[in-house]
């Protein structure tokens, strides 16, 4: 297994990704859309987010994808790229984008699985392009000069200050 490079998200990329996510919320009549890194980090969120603990959501979604990915390998599949969880009121549709990003759509009976699937397909392609770009950029950034990470300059004091209670 290859090591996944560090994920770096810049403002301009985030704006583009967020625009696609918002569009997907309205096109699919969804309640909310989340983009989560496979390691459990929330990358973008759009829609009705009131009352949703998005940090927990990200970690559980990633755990879910990791577990089912492991399951897939056991039975000889590479991955299960599409997941659907049906609830009494709300449903969750999950797909993988660009191998590394999990696209989560939460929807209720204002929408339907068919519509969500259709819209996710289109948005997924767009998002895949954006993320492929972003990964390339992040790699170049880390290998070359670029503006550099804000952490290149941190001092021991900066770190100690974090822990001063």
């Amino acid at each position: 297994m290859s090591l996944t490079p560090q994920l770096v998200l810049f403002e301009e990329d985030h704006t583009k990704i967020l625009a696609v996510s918002k569009r997907l919320v309205s096109d699919a009549n969804a309640k909310a859309v989340f983009l989560v890194d496979k390691n459990g980090q929330m990358v973008a969120e759009a829609g009705e987010l009131v009352g949703i603990d998005t940090t927990s959501l990200a970690s559980l979604v990633a755990g879910n994808i990791a577990a089912t990915g492991g399951l897939a390998k056991i039975i000889g599949e590479n991955e299960f790229p599409v997941h659907f969880h049906q609830g009494e009121r709300d449903n969750v549709h999950i797909t993988l984008v660009a191998q590394r990003i999990i696209l989560v759509v939460v929807f209720d009976d204002r929408s339907s699985l068919g519509l969500v699937r259709l819209r996710v397909k289109k948005a997924g392609q767009k998002l895949a392009e954006l993320f492929e770009d972003l990964f390339k950029k992040a790699e170049a950034e880390l290998s070359d000069e670029g503006p550099g990470s804000p952490f290149a300059e941190i001092t021991d004091d900066d770190i100690d200050n974090l822990f001063s209670d």
Binding site: L7, L9, H14, D37, S149, P150
Partner: peptide, 15 residues
């Protein structure tokens, strides 16, 4: 690997 989010000005690490 750590996730550096310039948009939210956040850095996330996994321990």
């Amino acid at each position: 690997m750590a996730f550096i989010n310039y948009s939210a000005r956040e850095i996330n690490c996994k321990l």
